[in-house]
Amino acid sequence: MSADDTALETYLLAAMRLAAHADPPPARLSADAMAALSMRLPGSVVATPADLTAASGARSDGKPQMHRFAAGETTLDVETTITEGRLEIAGQVSPPPTPDAYVEVRTPHLTKVRVPSSDGQFAVTGLPPGWVSVAYHRPSGPPVVTRWLRVRA
């Protein structure tokens, strides 16, 4: 079956279910979609995955997963771990940040701010599993944001 046929089959099945009201969406779906809008960071530069073997939607299973993102000269390393049902992030920005720089570790429901150490390291605990993105704010240029990454146990 071709890729187009696979897509068509998916859309046909979706249309049949919509017509039959066979599978209504959960109530939280709309709230999640609205929450996504609040994650906008106009003017930001998107850092794309630099290590394709590691960078992908991840199931952590308690083991740290490493992801590298890059935008120009800026690199963000993000290590994700699920511990007791909560998401932990440890990361590093490079080149080393200036004193006014800070990092936001963002999920659609909770964002935490950290000032990285002089060598660029930062860490956050207690986040809800799911989609996460890191925004690096620096005085010398626009914020750099990583692509959204899904982390589940």
């Binding site: 969406p25 959960p26 939280r28 779906l29 999640d32 979609a33 929450a35 996504a36 809008l37 994650m39 939607g57 659609p108 799911g130 989609w131 993105s133 959204w148 899904r150 589940r152």
Partner: peptide
């Protein structure tokens, strides 16, 4: 639900 929210993001 994650896939849908991912698409919005």
């Amino acid at each position: 639900a994650d896939a849908v929210q991912g698409a919005w993001l």
